[in-house]
Structure formats: structure tokens, C-alpha cells
Design a protein around this nucleic acid. Structure first.
Length: 1028
RNA sequence: GGGCGAUUAGCUCAGUUGGUUAGAGCGCCGCUCUGAUAAGGCGGAGGUCCGUGGUUCGAAUCCACGAUCGCCCA
């Protein structure tokens, strides 16, 4: 006998004793998630589980996923962990299904984010500071920052349980990646999309660079700026002025014109000031004239003593009558529309401020002042000159720099652009082939594509992709497409070219294609989204002839990765991505730049499906801000809740709503997780007692008992439905399914089956084991740690890890059976309600239950009787008082205004029942479909009903029932006592009951003894138990 | 400033083509069940369905206007 001595007491609950080693490891009361996770991480590594998984799936169907590169300027955050969890979940799911995957992680390593972080670390605060610090050293510090951040992200991601090919990551600052962008830019140039634009753009004076359209996302903030009304004296009309309004005083020195709407009416105030009539309807204005008559009037500019240009009133049909004076100050050097208007009319262009937003020396006493500093002095000066009409503050929305929050200015600059004229429609067509989850995000992409302007790709910065543009004095623009080409055409400087990067690359002039002269590179670097957008090409070896080992470990990425540069066949295999996933703001960023490049290079979309998701907030719905003290560090989250709980929280979140993340919600999840834990724990405890031995080879039980059959079908339904939701990239719906399934498993199957486990019913064990094992397989992608931890305990002879076990194959569930049990549970709920309304606790047995309107449940009457503790269950008509209500959707259209009266009549019982379920009321005959008939309130019965289902519980208690009720009370009391006194589950007792309980014991002795494991029951004396 | 969306219990949210007593989860209170469970079950308190007006026999739902919030665009 392998399990040693077994004791059985005849007629008792068959709880056996075991004395030898249990099959399953007993579970502690609660799981220690961090401890389990650390242990599993070690075990995965030691057993090379991930490597085994990849080997197994090698050569299988491919599932191509592109990882959007995370910016390497921060440690791991709980925000980052959300996205990483989603990426991991679906890659794991696809791996269970046998898909071959690449698992390449990516880092975004250049651009303003990195520079600004390093500037901050070094205490630098301007471009001049950086140049004084030295570009070479600055570049090294930027790389250090990237290395630090990459290490943090590796560490955190592994701790989160993310399975990626760590060590084969791509870094966007590799020379390889840079070369691929060059190649793309050259293709753009060959198609004539590339041009240098001289125009007024949003400009960050602190960063000293222009800001492109997609960088303006979310950058408008509410601000209070100066609001100035200024009058310009008219040269040919003494004593008269035009009055303008502005919120940017620093642009006044650049004024060259005042625009009026030629179609609107203007008038003169008594003091000589001209304004639009519509703007001042209550004022007395004389000499009214259409705007067209003001056109051509010359005026004296506000700063003529500094800059002398001719000022004139010009026509502009877009002048709005919604704010200001109806006359608009025009400074073509300081505004986009002003510039365009100026170009059309041939107005002079004045550029008042330099790259850092300070006035040029040529602006007299203003020189050196910043746009902000100058405001007050300009206001003072205008007042002194007597041309300031009014000064105040104006609240409006104004754009800030997305990185440093400096208010942007408009500044004329030479920037490099890619024209989107031809590409727009191609991109829209490509996007139409993409399936977006949630759907509205695809529409957002369309909106953006419809509205986007030409792409400003140049930044006047340092640590970024060097634009390979070499404009020659001869007028020819040389665009270098590869390192090889650079080397072939270099005049000098190759020996010092450490990386394709500033400052080294700036020391390599090339020979002009056209005239043969040496040409310098422009100093600009590229928009960081070029780096990220090229990834589907640079990492997959697009148009690369020969596979290059470690070919992506070039330039700054050398030593950080071992990623190869594959050949073109590999690109063909893995492009486009089957799926990508990032947060919503990436629509206009990474999703856009990827789409852009892909359309340029291939004419196709680079991905088939996209999962986008909204923002993360704290658990009260506020943004997480360091200064508000409501941020949660990744390490703290992992230590306090555990990675599985975090992952559940992320996965349960519908992607179209903000995630309210925190320890409160984590607590709720832990409670739910505990139900799963306890279900396994229950199984383990009793399976050990019953020496149940599971067998992986006969996984699915041949269920005979109705309840077992139900659980098997219920499990099939869960597996099938969960697969559907995974396939739709809605893991939140997988979690919803799981919660419902877990409730069924725990609060119906286990609760209903407890006695069978006590009785060592092997079929029950086999069924529960099957359900638990399948559950772990479904949950493995979401909670890889706890799933594997429990798997290793429950499945001794199957695959060593749940992640190697593949997605469960199950048959089509028997939905009809599931519906029946659904109905049973509704009947039980109603019966419990009826009990409560009659004040009858469940321990009191009742004579009978009558059920009406639940025919499917009739096959399970024993089940219902037991749950409700009724001696019998009848299915039939509940004879009760008749209530007739109007069926409003049916009767409303027919009766119209008469309806309230009929309704009233029915309610007060003022009707006559006719044959065939028809009723006569208030002169109308109502058909059966036009009324809702309910019965209730039968004498001696407690009735409850809901949606066509009615139950009636016989509440009459006879002596027999009362006595039995007392027996249940006694059992309950004694069992509580056993628990309180710390008795083992299998301890046998001698029970002593008071004299008053003699009648109960005499009638129900065997039942009581069996339920409380009493070998003997003594009557007389105080209630007590002792070990026998 | 323009466009889109939202506003329902203390919190997070459901609420079908307009229909009968507006729901769920969490939290709170009471009762109850329980030898896996910190769980479960039943009940209670808690609602100006943002406001005003309209259409309709009937409006959380449809229409108009307004308020507030969010997102996108400028």
C-alpha cells in the first residue's frame, strides 16, 4: 500500500489519513508573489525554458511583431510596464499556439529626450553651454545615459516576466540604423520630395530648434499672456491711428503692416482711432468706411527709431471679427500666416530674434533681451511714446515645447522638409488595410493623415541622426545614401570617424557630384522619429545582400548588442508585422513615421494589426506627477504587489479607457487571485488524502456525473471563448471571461462537490484537475509566474513548464447544458431570496419548492433541492394571485393616449379574465402578447420572481422539519468548535451534547456523527468535544 | 477658436430599436452560509440619470439650447 496506513470509519465521511509523501505540494494560506516570481525566474533561466520554447516553435508559422523602441532616458516605469505586458501577453499567446517569433526588443537612443536629460545631469542649460562643454564629450555622455537606461529597462522587463531576445536588441543609434535612414532620405530625394523651406515655424528658444507638427501634440496649454492694444499714427491723416491687438509684444519691432478685412466696415473714434465697427458696436464711430478704403494708408511703425521700414495697411480677407480690433498686426518674421501673406504681397521680412529667442544686436536697446524679458520694457516704451491704448492679460491656449515646457515662439528658419503631397493618399490607402483596436484609433490616424503638413525633419541639435545633406555652392544638393558612399567621396577626416555622428561626421567633407568642390554637411540632425520609423527595414535587412553577423552592433551600439543585420530574404519573411502595440499618442509618432517610411520604400503598410491603449493615471484618476507624490516606482510595485498582479491589472484594462493604476485595485485583484489559489489549495489538500494521481496522457476526463460533465463543458467554453478574445487582441475580455469562469469553478462546482472530494470520488478529482490545468494554460500569457508555479505542482508528468504546454485543444462546448445550469443557478438565487423574505435560514429544511418558467432546470431538480434545502422540487404552475400588467411596447402603439387609463385599470384589478389568456379591460380586449401575467403571494408560500421565472417556497414547518433544522444547527456548531479548537481535518472526536438536544441526537445520530467525525455521542452535560 | 466624445450611486462603469421598479463591481451596514476561501449568498442605505425646454401615451435613451470635463485640431 503505497500511502501507508489508511483509517476508515464505517458510515463516516470517508476522510483518509495518509502517512507517506503527498503527490502535490501543499499550498501556504496566501501566495507570496515576489518570492514565487523570483524563484520561477531562476528556474526558467536554469532550465532554459524560453530557449526551449523558441526551439520548439522554430520553423512553425511566423508571428511577426515589431517592438516600438522605448526612449532610453529613464528607468523602468509602471507606465512602460503596461505596454511591455501587453506585448509579452500576445507574444506568449502566439507562442503557445506554436508560432515562430523574433522577440527583438528595441531602444530609441537619440534625439531631444536624451539630450535634455544629459543637459540636466550636467547642469547645462543652452546650446552655447553644450558647445562649450564639447560635442565629443557630450556625445559620450549621451551614450552613457542610453547604456544606463537600457540596463534599467532590461532588469525591469525581465522582472516583469517579459520574454524577449535580450542581448539581441536593436539600438536606433547604430550606424546601421543611421545608414538605413540615409538610404530612405536618398530615395525621398530621388523622387524630389525633399526640399529646404524658408518659413516661419514653431520654435523652442531654449532648445534652439524648430518644432515639427507632430511634436506639437498635446503641447497647447492655458496661459495668461500680455494683451496689448497699440495705435499706429497714420502718416497722411494727422491725428488718426489704426489700432491693433497683440499678445506677443516682442513681435512689434518686426511689424511691417496692418491688415484689415476689405469686406468689413471700419469707423473712427472721436480720438482718431480706427477700429472695426463690428468689434465695438456700442461705441460712437464716425467716418465709417469699408476696409477696402483703408488699404494703402501708410503709418509710422512702433519702433521706427530702431528699424526703419515702410508700414502700410493691407487687405486680408481672413481678418477675423471675433477678437482684437479687427485690424491685425503683421510681422512676417514672426508668424506662419504673416509670413505667407508677406510673401504674397512682397512685404519685407524682419527677423528680430536669434536661435535662443534673444533680440539681435541690430535691434538697438532691445538687443540681448529674450522674448519674455522684452515684454515689459516694450510696454513701457509704447506708453512713453503715447501709442499704447491698453495693456492687460489674456488667457488663451498657447503651445509649449513638449520637452522643456518653454513657450514656443514663431521664428523664420531654414528647415528641411519632406513633401507629403504625393504620399498622403498612398498613406491613407495603406492605412485602410490596417486593422486597428480600438477601431477609433484608426480613424485618428486617418484624421492625422488628412491634416498633416510637410514633414519638418531637421533639428538644430547635436545627438541625433546626422542629415546626409551636402548642399554645394554650385547649387547642387548632394545626398549621401550609405557609409560606403561617404567613404568613397570623402575629402578627408575618415580616420577620425568613430561613429556616423556629430562631431566626427562634421569633419568629413565630401566632393560635390556636380562640380567636384569639397562640400560640408549641413549641421542639422534628423527628427528622432526618422530613427524609429526605419526600424522595420534596418533590423530586418531590407535590400541587404549578405547576412552580416552582429551587423546591427555598429557605431554607438557596438558592444551593447549582438544583433545581426539579416539579408533581404529574412525581411521578406518577417515584413510586414502581423501586430504592433503602443499607446495612443504613437499614432502621430511611431505608427506614423513607420507608415511613412514603409509607404515610401514599399508602398505598403508596415503592420497588419495595431493595438493602441489610453493613458495611465493614479488610482484616483489623477496624472502621476513626481511633485504630487503619487507616482509608483516600478520596483515598489513589483515588491509590494508582484508582477503577476500588475500584469492582471494591465490586462484587465479596456484599451479605450484610461488605466487607474495603484495598490487599491491591486488589492482587489489579489483577492480574486486568492480564489484561484484556494481552489488549487483545496484540490491539493484532498487529492493528497485520496492519493489521486493525475495523468497528463489522459488529460480530459470521461465525465459521467452531471456536475462533472458540466464543468468539462464549462471549461471548454472558457478555453474557446478566451482564444477568441486573445485573437481579437482583447485580453481585457479574456480576464472578464476568466472571472466568470473562476466563480463558476469555485462557487458552484467545488462548493457543490465538496462531499464527493471527502468521499474520494476519483472522477471528481480528475475533473477538477482537468479544469485547473486548462485554466493555467489559458492564463499563462497573462500571469506567467503563478501559472508556472502551480503548473509545476499540478502536472508532475506533463511538459515541464506551462509555457511549453501549448494552447489547450478542446471540443466545442455543449452550450445547451451550460444554459441549463445557468437557469439552475437563477432558480437557486430566487429561492434564496424567497427564504430571506420569509426569514428562513438555510439550515432549516423545507418541504417543497415550486418552480415556474425554468424548464431546462427541471433535469437538475436534485441539485436544486440540495442547494435550497427543500425536500422536493416541483416544476409547474405557481398557484398564486394574478397580476396583469400591460406589455408596453406592444400596447403603446395600439392604445396611444388611452394607455395610462388601461394601465391603471389593470393595476387595480379592474379587469376580466377571458379564455385563452385574453383579458377584457376598459372596453378593450387584450391579446396574450399584449399583457404580462405574474402570480405571487400564495398563502403559506414565499414567492420570488424575475424575468419570467417564479419560485414559491412552502414555508410551513412541521416537527420533523424543525427537528432536522436543529440537527443542522448542532452540526454547524460542533464543526465551528472543531475549527476553533484547532482540530485536524481528520481528527475523530467524542461529542457531548446537553440533555436538551436528546431528541435531536436520537433521531439524527448517524448523520450528526458522520458530519462531525464523532466516534461517540454522549448526551448530558455541557456541549463539548474531545479527541477520541 | 473649430471638431469629436462624455456627464448615470461615495468611487469605477453598464444601460439594446424610447417601454414597466435604472443596474453591476468596489466601499459601507445588517443578516446568512461555510472543514478550500480574507471568498460566497441575501438584503439595506446610497440616484435631480448635468441643467432647461421640446417631441411622445411613455425619455437616462430622440431633438434644441446651455453648463462642465476630456480628447483631437489650430
Amino acid at each position: 500500500m503505497p500511502f501507508g496506513f489508511l483509517s476508515r470509519v464505517p458510515g463516516m465521511r470517508n476522510v483518509a489519513l495518509y502517512t507517506s509523501v503527498p503527490v502535490f505540494e501543499p499550498l501556504p494560506k496566501v501566495p507570496d508573489h515576489p518570492a514565487i516570481e523570483e524563484e520561477i525566474l531562476d528556474w526558467w533561466e536554469g532550465q532554459e525554458i524560453f530557449a526551449k520554447l523558441r526551439r520548439r516553435n522554430e520553423g512553425g508559422p511566423t508571428f511577426s511583431f515589431f517592438d516600438g523602441p522605448v526612449t532610453t532616458n529613464k528607468p523602468m516605469l509602471v507606465h512602460t510596464a503596461w505596454g511591455r505586458t501587453l506585448k509579452d501577453v500576445f507574444q506568449r499567446y502566439k507562442a503557445l499556439r506554436g508560432f515562430d517569433e523574433r522577440y527583438q526588443n528595441g531602444f530609441d537612443c537619440q534625439g531631444l529626450w536624451i539630450e535634455v536629460g544629459v543637459e540636466h545631469d550636467l547642469g547645462l542649460n543652452s546650446k552655447r553651454d553644450i558647445e562649450e562643454y564639447g560635442l565629443e564629450e557630450f556625445a559620450r555622455k549621451c551614450r552613457d545615459k542610453v547604456v544606463w537606461s537600457a540596463n534599467e529597462l532590461w532588469k525591469g522587463s525581465k522582472r516583469l516576466g517579459q520574454w524577449m531576445d535580450w542581448g539581441n536588441d536593436y539600438f536606433t543609434f547604430s550606424d546601421t540604423n543611421i545608414e538605413y535612414v540615409w538610404r530612405m532620405l536618398r530615395a525621398v530625394h530621388e523622387r524630389d520630395y525633399l526640399y529646404m523651406g524658408h518659413r516661419s515655424t514653431e520654435w523652442c528658444p531654449r532648445c534652439g530648434t524648430s518644432i515639427s507638427q507632430h511634436e506639437l501634440i498635446g503641447s497647447y496649454v492655458d496661459r495668461a499672456d500680455p494683451s496689448l492694444y497699440v495705435r499706429f499714427p497714420l502718416l497722411d491723416r494727422p491725428g488718426e491711428f489704426v489700432v491693433i491687438w497683440t499678445t506677443t509684444p516682442w513681435t512689434l519691432p518686426a511689424n511691417v503692416a496692418a491688415a484689415v478685412n476689405p469686406r468689413e466696415e471700419y469707423g473712427r473714434r472721436a480720438n482718431g482711432e480706427w477700429v472695426a465697427v463690428k468689434r465695438y458696436p456700442d461705441e460712437t464711430l464716425v467716418d465709417r468706411r469699408p476696409g477696402s478704403e483703408l488699404v494703402g494708408w501708410r503709418y509710422r511703425g512702433p519702433f521706427d527709431e530702431i528699424v526703419s521700414v515702410d508700414h502700410v495697411v493691407i487687405p486680408w480677407e481672413d481678418v477675423s471679427m471675433d477678437d482684437g480690433t479687427g485690424i491685425v498686426h503683421i510681422a512676417p518674421g514672426c508668424g506662419t500666416e504673416d509670413f505667407e501673406l508677406g510673401q504674397k504681397l512682397g512685404l519685407p521680412v524682419l527677423m528680430p530674434v536669434d536661435e535662443s529667442g534673444r533680440f539681435y544686436d541690430s535691434f538697438g536697446w532691445l538687443h540681448g533681451l529674450s522674448t519674455v524679458e522684452s515684454a515689459e520694457q516694450i510696454i513701457g516704451d509704447l506708453e512713453e511714446k503715447g501709442i499704447l491704448v491698453e495693456a492687460g492679460l489674456h488667457e488663451h491656449r498657447y503651445p509649449e515645447c513638449w520637452r522643456c515646457h518653454t513657450p514656443l515662439i514663431f521664428r523664420l528658419a531654414d528647415d528641411w522638409f519632406i513633401s507629403v503631397r504625393d504620399l498622403r493618399q498612398q498613406m491613407l490607402d495603406a492605412n485602410a488595410t490596417v486593422e486597428w483596436v480600438p477601431e477609433y484609433m484608426g480613424k485618428r490616424m486617418d484624421d492625422w493623415l488628412h491634416n498633416m503638413g510637410d514633414w519638418n525633419i531637421s533639428r538644430r541639435r547635436y545627438y541625433g541622426l546626422p542629415l546626409p545633406f551636402y548642399p554645394c555652392a554650385c547649387g547642387h544638393l548632394n545626398v549621401i545614401g550609405s557609409r560606403r558612399e561617404l567613404e568613397a567621396r570623402a575629402v578627408s577626416g575618415l580616420e577620425q570617424l568613430e561613429e556616423l555622428r556629430r562631431p566626427w561626421i562634421d569633419r568629413v567633407p565630401i566632393r560635390c557630384d556636380e562640380c567636384g568642390e569639397a562640400v560640408q554637411r549641413v549641421t542639422e540632425v534628423g527628427d528622432v522619429w526618422l530613427d524609429a520609423g526605419i526600424v522595420p527595414f534596418s533590423t530586418l535587412g531590407w535590400q541587404n545582400d549578405e547576412w552580416v553577423p552582429e551587423g546591427n552592433a555598429t557605431g554607438a551600439a557596438r558592444g551593447l548588442t549582438t544583433a545581426d543585420l539579416p539579408d533581404h530574404a529574412y525581411w521578406e519573411k518577417w515584413f510586414p508585422a502581423d501586430w504592433v502595440s503602443e499607446m495612443r499618442e504613437q499614432i502621430r509618432l511611431w505608427f506614423y513615421s513607420q507608415l511613412f517610411m514603409s509607404v515610401v520604400l514599399t508602398g505598403k503598410a508596415p503592420f497588419r494589426k495595431v493595438l493602441g491603449y489610453e493613458k495611465m493615471l493614479d488610482e484616483t484618476g489623477r496624472e502621476m506627477h513626481g511633485s504630487w507624490g503619487n507616482t509608483i516606482a516600478f520596483e515598489e510595485a513589483v515588491d509590494r504587489m508582484g508582477a503577476d498582479v500588475m500584469r492582471w491589472q494591465y490586462c484587465a484594462q479596456p484599451p479605450d479607457r484610461n488605466l487607474l493604476f495603484g495598490f487599491g485595485p491591486a488589492q482587489e485583484i489579489k483577492r480574486k487571485l486568492l480564489t484561484l489559489w484556494n481552489s488549487v489549495s483545496f484540490f491539493v489538500e484532498y487529492a493528497n488524502i485520496a492519493q489521486f494521481t493525475p495523468s497528463w496522457s489522459s488529460l480530459e476526463p470521461d465525465a459521467q456525473a452531471p456536475l462533472d460533465r458540466w464543468l468539462v463543458e464549462r471549461t471548454h467554453a472558457f478555453v474557446v471563448d478566451a482564444a477568441g478574445r486573445y485573437e481579437a487582441y482583447r485580453v481585457d475580455e479574456v480576464m472578464t471571461l476568466f472571472e466568470a469562469y473562476l466563480d463558476d469553478l469555485s462557487n458552484w462546482y467545488i462548493r457543490r462537490s465538496r462531499r464527493r472530494f471527502w468521499d474520494e470520488d476519483q472522477a471528481a478529482f480528475a475533473t477538477l484537475w482537468y479544469a485547473l490545468v486548462q485554466t493555467l494554460r489559458v492564463l499563462a500569457p497573462v500571469m506567467p509566474f503563478i501559472a508556472d508555479h502551480l503548473w509545476r505542482n499540478l502536472v508532475p508528468d506533463g511538459p515541464e513548464s506551462v509555457h511549453l504546454a501549448q494552447w489547450p485543444e478542446v471540443g466545442e462546448p455543449d452550450r445547451a447544458l451550460l444554459d441549463e445550469i445557468e437557469e439552475v443557478r437563477r432558480v437557486v438565487t430566487l429561492a434564496h431570496q424567497a427564504r430571506a423574505s420569509a426569514n428562513l435560514k438555510l439550515r432549516q429544511p423545507l418541504r417543497r419548492l415550486v418552480v415556474e418558467g425554468a424548464n431546462g432546470a427541471s433535469r437538475h431538480s436534485a441539485e436544486i433541492a440540495d442547494e435550497v434545502r427543500a425536500k422536493s422540487v416541483e416544476f409547474g404552475t405557481v398557484e398564486a394571485q394574478l397580476h396583469v400588467k400591460p406589455n408596453l411596447p406592444a400596447l403603446g402603439p395600439r392604445l396611444g393616449k388611452e394607455l395610462p387609463a388601461i394601465r391603471q385599470a389593470l393595476q387595480s384589478g379592474d379587469f376580466e379574465e377571458l379564455a385563452g389568456g385574453r383579458f377584457r379591460v376598459g372596453g378593450h380586449e387584450l391579446e396574450p402578447g399584449e399583457v404580462l401575467v405574474e402570480r405571487s403571494g400564495r398563502e403559506g408560500f414565499a414567492v420570488a420572481s424575475e424575468a419570467g421565472l417564479t419560485v414559491a417556497l412552502d414555508t410551513v414547518l412541521d416537527d420533523e422539519l424543525l427537528l432536522e433544522g436543529r440537527a443542522f444547527d448542532l452540526i454547524r456548531t460542533v464543526n465551528q468548535l472543531r475549527k476553533d479548537e484547532g482540530f485536524e481535518l481528520v481528527d475523530r472526536i467524542v461529542l457531548t451534547v446537553p440533555e436538551g438536544e436528546r431528541d435531536v441526537v436520537e433521531t439524527h445520530r448517524d448523520r450528526i456523527a458522520g458530519e462531525v467525525l464523532a466516534t461517540e455521542i454522549r448526551v448530558g452535560g455541557a456541549l463539548g468535544i474531545a479527541k477520541s
